[in-house]
Amino acid sequence: MKIAVCIKRVPDMESRFKIAASGTAIDETGLKYDISDFDAYAVEVALQINEKAGAGETTVICLGPDAVQETIRKALSMGAEKGVQLRADAVPADSLAIARALAAELKDGGYELILFGKHALDTMTGGAGTMAAELLGLPCLTAASRLEVTGARATARRELEGAAELLEFPLPAVVTIDEGIARPRYPSLKGIMAAKKKPLDVKPAQLGSVRVSVEKMELPAERPPGRIVGTGPDAVPELVRLLQTEAKVL
């Protein structure tokens, strides 16, 4: 089937972040970037659906500056057939603007299934997928931990606190993907070679008016150093008191 996967390029979350001089963004110097984890799961899900069907086409779409082409190539080296870059100087903080640009690209693509990660690892807004679904007038299901397609319908599982629900819906639809659904494959050397020759279209991102912007970004306060209350059984009453009154965890 024709599947679109919308992916985002995000910094390695284990980096040591600094705030840029502007005060509204992180300093990108020296950061390593990769496809956002949930988006990589979504790519894997799309590849598996089409492999199981024995036919199909997966297109990955990524919004951002030219650096995102590397991220698109990675998805192509995993096995996606086509890539589209929606070129923008930066990814705006306005999820609706992002959704608008994506919806404009998705609208006439004839996709039967549109996948997103449930949220991007860096901003964690999780808005673009649901908003794009609304703009496209498609059913939307968030945080799927399992997804199966049968003909023109699909079923998905969502994990709830202490329970799970199974949902059924018609295609085309927008589904955002949770972790645990599939382990993203490593690109094989053949895949890396093949990715070079796969089509990667570059188009301007039709963001429309961007109404939300970051005013200020700050790092979390440093954690105060730990305290040793005492040693041995004598220290227990004081420890319990502090856990109750100060840490408020008991």
Binding site: E70, R73, K74, S77, Y186, P187, L189, I192, M193, A195, K196
Partner: peptide, 15 residues
């Protein structure tokens, strides 16, 4: 080349 870097990235992740 860019392709060498993609190979490195993959093997690094695998390792």
């Amino acid at each position: 080349s860019e392709q060498h870097l993609a190979v490195r990235e993959m093997v690094r992740e695998f390792a």
